[in-house]
Design a protein around this nucleic acid. Structure first.
Lengths: 321, 321
DNA sequence: TCTCTTTCTGTAAACGTTTTCCTTTATTAT
DNA sequence: ATAATAAAGGAAAACGTTTACAGAAAGAGA
């Protein structure tokens, strides 16, 4: 491996001069600098990331922690992150797998964005305490080294319940999410508050885990006790898709007997039939804002708390009762 | 930052003993070893990834290069990679963005899997020449440091054309992919060979770029010159979805007037109506096999060339003429 | 008692950079 | 001619590990 030492030898200068030249420092003449650059190119020199980051104590890489890469959802999010990060000279690496937790404390990365409910808040806190910079997208945290950008889950859930109620539904199921998910908890909380405003609606909670099979299971339950048209708020679209799967094998029709609204507006939602009513928000903006806050934090700015707005998307899966 | 030096001081031993102890070397007594471990924990010691990889010349991280994270497709693929990699003590990082190209030569990562047509073959070759280990999934390369695992595009494309022909279609459109894509080129080549076997079919090529809008554009063209039922082979599912979008706004019906078959079997394909006929393969296996070959390569084994099998999935988007 | 092993621990070099602080040389002012 | 200043480059320490090698202590065999 050719190092800065080899260049120095060949150029007849010291390694410090080479380092300065390669980093465009004004401490070295333009001529020597150019000569050194030429030699570096000629020798096919490539700096060692390890050596540099050992010395500089930075890597110019930031990590995003995800539970799973489950398709549709993350594409836009990551795209948004990438854009603002690379504008600021950073690279993004997607970390997954238990071992990748070491990236942050070992300083493989300069900061991290967290969207992984399985990452213990305790652990995050201890990282922040050591001086690492974080942005959380999936929990509330208050710390000098942590910014947060959360979805407006309450507004979204309220929008969904109101939509069902306005369409005349008197029996409303809510398909819950996993207890571990902050978004699920917030949405459920808002739902419970919202239904209180409609004294005449019958409200039933069903267990779910944000995955399709739990949607199918819940649909089965609804099917079994079916007597009149009902409304269903699935706390995410994924489970709503599961419901579609189940009902397609029955005599119950979505948008006629069972009126479904989801949350997230994932890609599939617009292609299924009937179009799924859902709560939408810009995943791209969510990602880019998170990155922006992280960069600010690294630049020693104050931690910030932001919120992403949501809106209702109507679809034929919810119609008048 | 607490380093092994601090531990050594506190334990009253030398730094080498600490290093040995922390790495479980048999050169140090169990007692001292345990004592040192305890002190390390107490001081909250965390090794420096940079220092270690500078010395050991390895990072235990491998990178996957992707053009874009476009949802549905990559989820399973990455999952497959993660599983086999973490079984072998490696972490996976997803690299994207022009700057991330430096990860490999700078030895941020021990090896890379390539699925990014914009990565120049020249560049890959020069990396391999320097001794870096690669697995390519999107091109053919022969080199002592490069393994490859490719889809059986030819079989897939042939299956698709045969399916349309068997269903009695006499006019067949093929919606091509971008010139830069190896998969697109291979599929097209196989199509051209396959249609020759059906002397009575009229065969027309349309330009596409693997994205939805190009599917819509092609659909428009088909619509304009429509006179009788036709078959269409979209070289990927994404473009087929684009066609559905277009035709849903016309009087032409998919599965009746326009018979569409795709390639990839992405998640959406099974939810759109009518179900898209397509060519399927295991993305999970593709990913895990690629990882396996890379690990073999790193272990100084010989490069290997593997192929992923494909199969036909029938759907109501293609019916008898 | 002496030497030879064996077992444990320490010394120091190395990995490839960056950066602080010097030294040399050339330039200008006096 | 001399001193003061500026400009360009070099020496060396530092970042935090790993590891080849050397050394010391202790027990065993003669």
């Amino acid at each position: 491996m050719v190092s800065i030492k080899d260049i120095a030898k060949k150029a007849g200068v010291s390694i410090s001069t080479v380092s300065y030249a390669l980093n465009g420092s004004p401490k070295v003449t333009k001529e020597t600098s150019e000569r050194i650059q030429a030699i570096a190119k000629e020798l096919n020199y490539i700096p060692s990331a390890a050596a540099r980051s050992l010395k500089k104590r930075e890597t110019k890489i930031i990590g995003i922690y995800l539970t799973n890469y489950s398709g549709a959802f993350y594409g836009e999010l990551l795209q948004g992150m990438m854009e603002t990060l690379s504008k600021n000279g950073y690279e993004l690496i997607v970390c997954s797998g238990k071992e990748s937790h070491r990236f942050l404390p070992e300083r493989m990365i300069d900061g991290a964005i967290i969207l992984d409910a399985t990452y213990e808040t305790e652990e995050l806190l201890s990282h922040a305490e050591r001086g690492h910079k974080l942005v959380v997208m999936d929990r509330r945290m208050d710390h000098i080294n942590i910014s947060q950008v959360l979805l407006d889950n309450k507004a979204g859930a309220t929008l969904a319940i109101d939509h069902l109620a306005e369409k005349g539904h008197r029996k409303i199921y809510v398909l819950k999410g996993p207890e571990i998910s902050f978004d699920a908890r917030q949405r459920l909380e808002a739902v419970q508050k919202a239904v209180q405003r409609y004294s005449q609606v019958e409200y039933v909670e069903l267990d779910g885990d944000f995955n399709k099979p739990s949607g199918e299971a819940a649909a089965k339950k609804i099917h079994q006790e079916f007597s009149e048209p009902v409304g269903v708020f699935c706390l995410n679209d994924e489970m709503a898709i599961g419901m579609y799967n189940y009902f397609s094998r029955t005599n119950l029709r979505v948008g006629e007997d069972v009126h479904i609204i989801g949350f997230d507006n994932i890609e599939v939602s617009q292609y299924i039939h009937p179009r799924l009513a859902t709560i939408n928000y810009s995943k791209h903006k969510w990602g880019s804002l998170a990155s922006e806050l992280l960069i600010n934090l690294i630049k020693k700015k104050k931690p910030e708390h932001e919120r992403i707005n949501v809106s209702l998307i109507e679809g034929d899966s919810v119609r008048n009762r």
